[in-house]
Nucleic acid binder design. Structure first.
Lengths: 214, 214, 214, 214
DNA sequence: AATGAATGAGAATTCATTCAT
DNA sequence: AATGAATGAATTCTCATTCAT
């Protein structure tokens, strides 16, 4: 949008939009240069704005990074809750939908994953990161445990343990994210999905019937 | 000159020890402060040595970081290969042994994991990290595919796909590492192991018989 | 155009009030944060107005500071001249009245003194400050020399030197201002006044008879 | 000293000397540019050293400024105590010696005075400055009260109040410092001294006999 | 081989000034 | 006349690297 980008200058955006613009630029920079090489100058340049802009809107670099993590986290949460809301009536469908969401390009893309891993790696160093990340993890786990329990109940899978299943599914997707990040060329979304599906068929055979793989 | 070469040997050893001392200090610092806040002064202080020491032994910070990743990677590889060598005759036992190793404190500890995640997050930015990390991933995957294939062959699990199983197991352990890093307090090694075992029983029931969980 | 000129008059008044409001805010800020830490944002906030307001009314920070010094200086001068005008007929009474004025709260208060000392300290660096400050000093000295001379003449204090007396009195009050600024808790206006009175009695015994100190 | 200044480079000075060099440079800068315009770059340049040098030796600008005030204060105190020690047996001589010291070029010079006034003006804003300045003031006052009391006792000056005399003398010299700072051209050390002497003769006539003024 | 003071480039931060609204 | 978001130069501070000892 040439007209649009020409208009993006002084006073063009409301305060909240400006903040979002800077957070977006931060995500791009972290993905491109890594967290440890991302400078405020990089972020400002990526956003096409001036040096002092970040401190104007976020007071400090630390705060910008924290708000970036918060945004990525909330963004994930919104998609997660929306997917859940649409499918929660059918626990097996819901579980699969959530997994599919995790592997969708809007979540599982190299840019956002670089951000997640960057912050995960600093969790031990920055307590505020730890809180945010652990909270997401727990919330996710709670939902999965509930869904798994309902499936177990429904299908009479006496041997299965809902919390182990939830942990396995959560770990599986996190691990698949890693291979998407580390080796994006050989990462294949369909293969990743089949990896999880094969697990689901193994423990909940009646709910995840064999289907032709693409 | 025996005396001379002995001296050189001693010096070379001392030099190697210094390098290792600095790599250990680097790992501690990355875990404690995060990669992005780790300075050479931090590393030198952690090692109890002087400011200029890192450049003396590693020429540059970038090189120190690279060598640190290489060390962690080789350290992992050594344990991996040793475990493999001891158990490779029995693929089912070998697979379980490798998983157990991944969850052992010598591998799955918050310090080393912080290093892994830090470098993973920069993989997109630093090609040399990408190479090292992708290589480990592939080697690990190759071994697991082979083991899974042997088990499938042995047990006649016609439906199972060795490469999907390998991918699932690799992702599972990586994902469990993440929960160990992010929420170490609620991380339980036994639960983590059972998570993987429950998966193995699901796909290879004859090889991983039910046993009483602790 | 009567209406027009009335409007201009009102506007001019408003403009002058705004300037004064900003000068008052500047004085408060200098006292509270020190000259070197006073920013235009501080001044605007103290005045309850917006960021750009100072440049609108004073063009530059330097100019605001200069106008602030000029205001404090003129304010002093007005009180000084008023006191002088009321008492000049009797040189001894006039001298004492001027001293008392110097120690009155309207002059000798921590806020205004902080401003005086801040500008005095920059006199070497900013020629315009130097001019203003030296001019006040000289004017004050001239008046005091004249009064002292008339008292000496009147009392036949042959040993006394009017210019030395004037210098001493001027220095005394400046020095008392300093102790008011530096140690306001132990500063006592009455003690300060008695300090000067004891000096006056020493040199002009007939004009400043002993009286019971409070 | 050409050879000397050529030698002044890396490693030339011990740590403490380097600190002193920077404090001296700070004093010069404050005198030349004023406290509010003195930057670390100015100080480093004045000292002929590199940008980062101040933070290396003083950690922060605030600390450099504080240490500078402390130095000026201690420097004053040393001269004060030395003068006192040499003359304390004779209170009248001691008092005069201390006054003379206050007006000597080593104390009463525009450079050091600019520093004193700069910090005095920030006393309300910076509690640590307040403490240092108030302490000096009190110590000085204590000594003067004691000397005045001994003179009063010795001479039978029943009307004189030692603490008022001390306050007057302290204020007088502080005020004379101000005129030295504000109007150095018309400042005359001899006149300044005579100003104080005339006061001393007024209250302690037997101890400070008339002498021909230069 | 080791030290640690010194450097200087570069990063974060501040803030006077501008200007569209 | 007033606002306050935006700018960008200047300032403080950091830190990898150098080098005399």
């Amino acid at each position: 949008m040439v007209a649009g980008s020409a208009t993006v200058g002084r006073r063009a955006l409301a305060k909240e939009q400006r903040r979002q613009q800077l957070i977006d630029a931060t995500i791009k920079c972290i993905a491109k240069k890594g967290l440890s090489s991302t400078t405020l100058a990089d972020v400002a340049k990526e956003a096409g704005l001036s040096q002092g802009i970040v401190n104007l809107h976020f007071d400090s670099k630390d705060n910008l990074l924290y708000e970036t993590l918060r945004y990525v986290s909330e963004d994930y949460d919104k998609q997660f809750m929306a997917t859940y809301a649409q499918t929660s009536a059918d626990p097996a469908a819901c579980l699969l939908a959530l997994i599919k969401m995790d592997l969708q390009p809007s979540i599982c893309d190299a840019k956002k994953l670089a951000v997640w891993f960057a912050f995960w790696s600093e969790v031990k160093a920055v307590p505020t990161y730890q809180k945010l990340c652990a909270a997401r993890e727990r919330k996710y786990d709670d939902v999965l445990v509930d869904l798994a329990a309902r499936i177990i109940d429904d299908g009479g899978y006496e041997d299965a343990d809902a919390s182990l299943v939830a942990k396995a599914l959560g770990s599986l997707t996190d691990g698949l994210w890693l291979s998407c990040l580390v080796d994006p060329k050989s990462f294949d979304r369909q293969v990743a999905l089949n990896t999880v599906k094969s697990y689901l068929r193994g423990i909940f055979p009646d709910h995840y019937l064999r289907e032709p793989t693409a």
